[in-house]
Amino acid sequence: MQPSPYTPGAIASELPGRDHQLAEFDERLSLMADLRQFVGRPRIDIAPRGVGKTSMLAQVRRMAEQRGAVTVWVAGGGSGSLIADLVAQLEAATESWAPTTRRKLHDLASRASFKVGVGVPGVARAEAEIAAPHTAETSVPAGAGEFTAFLAEAAAATQREHRSGLVLFIDEIQDADQSGLSSFAHGWQNLQHLPGQGPAPAAVFAAGLPNSDSALRAAASFTERWDYQPLGLLSQYAAIAALVRPAQRLGVGWGPDVLQAAVEYAEGFPFTLQLLGDAAWRAAGRPDPGGQITLANAMTAQGVIATDLATLHRARWNAATPAEQTFLQAMADIGGSSVSRAEIASRLHVASRSLSEHRERLIVKGIIRVTGHGRLGFTINGFGDYLRSRAED
C-alpha cells in the first residue's frame, strides 16, 4: 500500500499544463538573476479559486530560490497591513545577514510610517504607526517614500550578501488593505526613479482573484499598466498529465478508458482532478508498484467526491443574493460550459446592461468566470447540474 500522491486543497508539487506560464516567469527571473536587472513591472496572475494560482506562485518561488534570490512571501488579508507583513517577512529572511546591514534595515523601518516590529541582535525593538489612507487619487500615500528606501536598501543588500536579487511574492493580493496596497504600489514605482545607478535586481510576482486589477486600480491608478495574466483551466493533455504523472512516480498506471472518463468528468478543473485522483487511489486500495487504477475505481471515486462537490456547490449558492441566484439559475438552465451575456438577459427578459452589477459581484465571489468576450461559465464543474437538480426538486 502506498499513500496517495494527489493533493486536493494543498499546494501541488508539479504543474502540468503550465509550461508556458513557467517559461515566462523563468525569463523574468533570468533578467534579474543573470543580467542583474530590476524587473519594474509586477506580474499578477488572476483566476477563480481552485485553478492553481497559489501552487504556481509557490513553484516560481522555488525557481527564484534555486537562482540564488532572497524571497519574501505574504498573503493579503493577513495581519491587516500588507507593508507590515512584507517588512516583517523580509526581516525574518535576513536573520543571517551582516549585523551592519540588518541594523541599517532596522533604522529605515523605524523611521517609516508603517507599524512593524523589527528585531536586530543588540538593538532595541522599534514600532512605528500605520499610515492613514490617502484621499487624493493622485497623491503619494504617507509611508511610500520610507518603504521605497527600505526596499532599495534590501535589494542592494542582496548584492552585498552575494545573492542574485530580491523577489516579493504576494498571494491573495485582492484581500490586502487598501492603504497597504497604495503604499506598496507607490513605493515600488518610486524604485524606478532612484538617483544614481537605479535600483538593484528585484521583482514582484502576485496572484489573486479576478477582481485583483480593480482592487489595485482603486489603490493606485497607474497599476492598470501592470502585467495581469488570466490563468485558465487545464487542457485535456494537461489534465491527463495531472493524473498520470503522480501515479507513474509510484509505479502505478491509469488505463486509457479510465483517463478519458476522469478527464471528461473533471472538465479541466485542477481541484476536481486532485479530488478525483485521490479518491480513485483510495478506491484502488492504495496500490503498490505495478498496480492499475481501473474504470470501476474511477466510477467509485466520482460517487465519493460527489459529496465534497455538493458541499462546495451549496456553499456557493448560499453565498449569492436572491438576485444573483436568479442570474445563476438562468445560466444553468441555458446549459453548456459557456453562455453569453445576451442569452442570460434574454432568458431573464431584461436588458443586457442591467446584468453588470450581478455579473461583477458573482465574479468577485468566485462563483462565475469570464470564458470569452461577453461569455461566462461557472468556476467549478457540476455546478450547473446541481442548480438544475435543485430547481427540479
Rank of each mutant, 00 (worst) to 15 (best):
V140S: 08
W188I: 07
Y237M: 13
L273C: 04
A206P: 01
G382A: 07
F184I: 01
R286H: 13
E153D: 11
T71Q: 05
T326S: 15
K53W: 05
V258F: 11
A266V: 11
G382Q: 04
M1F: 10
R111C: 05
V204H: 01
R111T: 08
A261L: 14
H373T: 12
G366L: 03
G145S: 12
E360H: 14
A23N: 09
V350M: 12
Y386N: 07
T223M: 07
G291I: 09
L31E: 14
V364H: 14
A320Q: 06
A156E: 12
V123R: 05
E357I: 14
Q192L: 13
A12T: 09
I344V: 15
T7R: 15
E161W: 09
P201C: 07
G77Q: 07
Y386R: 00
H20P: 00
T321M: 11
A280L: 10
I44G: 00
Y6T: 03
D19C: 10
H193T: 14
A203T: 02
A136W: 07
A391Q: 15
Q197H: 12
H358R: 15
G76I: 05
V39Y: 03
A10P: 00
Q66E: 15
P8N: 03
L216C: 02
H162I: 10
V252A: 09
R217L: 06
E91P: 05
F205P: 03
G122W: 06
V120S: 01
S81V: 02
G290S: 07
R347E: 11
P48S: 06
S337V: 12
H186L: 01
V304Q: 15
T148N: 08
A64I: 00
D257H: 13
M1L: 12
Q292D: 12
L86F: 05
R111D: 12
S179N: 12
S182D: 10
T54P: 03
A202R: 03
L387M: 02
F205W: 13
R49S: 14
P289N: 05
F38G: 05
E146F: 04
G9Q: 04
V120C: 11
V244W: 04
I293S: 07
I11G: 05
F327I: 02
V51I: 15
I363H: 09
G384S: 15
A185I: 11
L259A: 03
A93L: 00
R111Y: 03
Q260L: 13
T7W: 11
A342P: 00
I305Y: 07
P230G: 09
S79C: 06
A112E: 02
G68H: 01
S235K: 05
V263W: 01
L250C: 08
S221V: 14
Q21L: 14
A280H: 08
R314F: 08
G196C: 09
D333N: 13
P256A: 07
M56K: 07
W226F: 10
E146L: 06
Q89L: 12
A203Q: 00
L233D: 10
Y228R: 08
V123F: 09
Q229A: 12
L35H: 14
W226C: 04
I11V: 14
R225V: 04
F169G: 06
S139G: 09
H313K: 02
Y6L: 05
S96L: 13
S214C: 04
H106K: 09
L309Q: 06
D288L: 14
E267T: 10
